[in-house]
């Protein structure tokens, strides 16, 4: 039983002259009240479509969706007062100032003139928007627009907050700030559904994660449960030259619980092991005996990257993303030779 509940949502788009796309292909979601659930998936997995259905923007071909027991599809007017939404692209009026944008949203939530202005000022402070307070949004950076849009989702204290890739396009500091705000809202009882491509974001924020691919949930659980499902610890080596790859794989195969994985450039070799510290010690000793030079060697717990790779057979993001690089739990021994 979730506060947000979706059952068997299906939505097919047929672009002109192309095969039909199953944007949602039997999606189920349950988000308990006062928790954060992350929908994690690559571009085109159906994340935005799912959010659009739940925020009354589009009607699915079939399936049901309720928020707090209220049917989203039949009674959108009962849903809209209690939700806050920030879409994937900043939905701001370019000709209005930051203040005017937020004031307008408040007035359209029917807060009244005075409360809307007061709230707009609070949000300007909270999101550090003073620069854009009295100047038209036009001409401000994407990050600034994004923050105004996120502030727009918080004009009221929504019972349910939908965030479609909330920190895409934010600098790292703003991202951490956004996480703080989301956590404080949840402490106050707000239910949050967010989508993200960033595994780290799901890991940091979410009580529950639903991994989706091609329009349906392919795995769900807490970050720890998902990581545990991939099992064990990892030893990862970065080689100085690719020529040593074969030899290194040979050594790691003996220690690993599964076949070692080699990166495309043959410079990074990873293997699952029973005991990380033990395996790392042995590997480093063997490599140094054979004079194989390393840039970097370390052990790490499985990340959601590993989960995603295992579940879907492809990586979550197209390009390697610096936020996932710094993901939790890496111990590094620099420049071991």
């Amino acid at each position: 039983m979730g506060f947000i509940e979706a059952r068997d949502l299906r939505k097919i788009y047929t672009p002109k002259g192309a095969e039909p796309v199953h944007a949602l292909d039997g999606l189920d979601l349950d988000v308990p009240e006062g928790t954060i659930t992350a929908i994690l998936g690559p571009n085109g997995a159906g994340k935005t479509t799912a959010v659009k259905v739940l925020t009354t923007l589009i009607t699915p071909d079939s399936g049901t969706a309720t928020i707090g027991g209220v049917n989203v599809l039949n009674r959108p007017e009962a849903i809209r007062p209690i939700i806050g939404v920030s879409g994937q692209y900043a939905a701001v009026d370019e000709n209005l100032t930051g203040f005017e944008n937020l004031d307008m949203v408040g007035r359209l939530y029917h807060l009244g003139a005075r409360a809307s202005r007061a709230r707009a000022r609070e949000l300007i402070d909270l999101f550090e928007l003073s620069e854009a307070q009295n100047r038209p949004v036009k001409g401000f950076s994407g990050g600034m627009r994004r923050r105004i849009d996120l502030a727009g989702a918080l004009v009221t204290r929504p019972r349910v907050l939908f965030l479609d890739e909330p920190t895409t396009g934010l600098d790292p500091r703003s991202r951490l700030g956004m996480w703080d705000i989301i956590r404080s809202l949840v402490d106050g009882g707000t239910t949050v559904l967010l989508t993200t491509q960033y595994l780290e974001e799901a890991d940091q924020l979410a009580d529950d994660i639903s991994v989706i691919d091609t329009g349906k949930v392919i795995a769900k659980g807490t970050a720890d449960e998902l990581k545990a499902s991939v099992g064990g610890q990892r030893v990862e080596l970065n080689l100085v030259t690719a020529e040593n790859a074969a030899e290194t794989v040979e050594i790691m195969r003996r220690l690993g619980t599964a076949e070692p994985a080699v990166s495309n450039d043959s410079r990074t070799v990873t293997v699952s092991v029973e005991s990380g510290p033990e395996a790392l010690r042995v590997v480093l000793a063997e490599l140094s005996e054979r004079n194989i030079a390393l840039f970097d060697a370390g052990m790490r717990r499985p990340t959601l990257d590993d989960v995603f790779l295992r579940l879907t057979g492809h990586v979550a993001t197209d390009e390697s993303d610096d936020t996932t690089e710094t993901a939790s739990g890496r111990t590094r021994a620099r420049k071991t030779t």
Partner: peptide, 25 residues
């Protein structure tokens, strides 16, 4: 975006009672 974690109470006001159709319009 500072000082938000210090306050246990989340920001904002609850959505008010929505006005009638005509007043809202």
């Amino acid at each position: 975006m500072t000082g938000t974690t210090a306050t246990p109470r989340p920001p904002g006001v609850d959505a008010p009672q929505q006005p009638g159709a005509l007043a809202g319009w």
